[in-house]
Design a protein around this nucleic acid. Structure first.
Length: 251
RNA sequence: GAGAACAGUUCGGGA
């Protein structure tokens, strides 16, 4: 068991999740009973590979194991559901974690909530994303939402072309003392683009530069597509100027 | 010490 599990860990670390799962199958075929560590490696493999069915199966093995499933284990299973194209099941898992709280294991943490917000994003449920974020702000995850949580929520608004709430979140986040980074800026800019607010998108890029950040490839593609949709070629030139000046594309 | 792990932003390509 130890050798097999060690191999699985190595495979997962190297991004070879399918081989790791193959080892789990082999253990079963050979009647080598997996232990908790084996399942932990397996569920991580499922997370990376988006193998949600197997993730849920492994999760229930962990749940019934003596030490029980950890918050991390649930989070890996949630990742598997989202990347496996079953985001609704990730939301189910969040509920399951909440039930578990009563049993005095830890409830969902910041990572779990953020994962659930990402699931909402994939489902187009931006209102639910906002309400999950609200719940976090009220202390529901045991700590306050961090930069990634806000970015995920902004991303959910962006996907639904809801630029106004996205901008609100961006501002709230700043007033909470969080410092926006490239990913969070790119998320609001995306919301502006999808909401047809190209002027706003340009302003956001400018404030990004003012804040000392270097726009990246994502920022530039975001703006260029926003501007070209409206054939604002002059503005697109300005964006390229800024991109060159800030060395945006040199990373 | 078999082992320290999980979450966020654009577009495109490949199986």
């Amino acid at each position: 068991v130890i050798v097999m599990t060690a191999c699985m860990n190595a495979l997962v670390g190297g991004g070879m999740w399918s081989q790791a799962l193959a080892l789990l199958d082999e253990m079963r075929a050979r009647d080598i009973p997996p232990n908790e560590r084996t399942y932990k490696a397996a569920i991580q493999a499922c997370g990376k590979g988006g193998q949600w069915q197997r993730a849920l199966e492994v999760l229930s093995c962990l749940e019934s194991s003596p030490s029980g499933a950890t918050v991390h284990n649930y989070n890996s299973a949630m990742t598997a559901c989202v990347t496996g194209g079953e985001p609704g099941r990730a939301l189910d898992l969040l509920e399951r974690m909440r039930q578990r709280k009563k049993g005095e294991n830890a409830g969902p943490n910041v990572v779990a909530f953020t994962g659930a917000i990402t699931a909402c994003s994939a489902l187009g449920m931006w209102k639910k994303a906002l309400s999950l974020l609200e719940e976090m702000r009220r202390g529901g995850s045991g700590s306050q939402p961090n930069l990634r949580s806000y970015t995920a929520a902004i991303g959910a608004c962006a996907r639904a072309s809801q630029w106004e709430p996205a901008v609100d979140l961006h501002e709230t986040m700043i007033s909470e003392g969080l410092v926006p980074d490239n990913a969070s800026y790119n998320a609001v800019i995306s919301a502006a683009r999808r909401g047809g607010q190209h002027e706003l998108a340009m302003k956001l890029m400018a404030s990004m530069v003012q804040a000392g950040l270097t726009p990246d490839l994502v920022t530039v593609t975001e703006l260029v597509s926003s501007l070209s949709e409206r054939k604002r070629w002059r503005d697109a030139d300005r964006v390229f100027d800024i991109a060159v000046r800030t060395k945006a594309l040199e990373a």
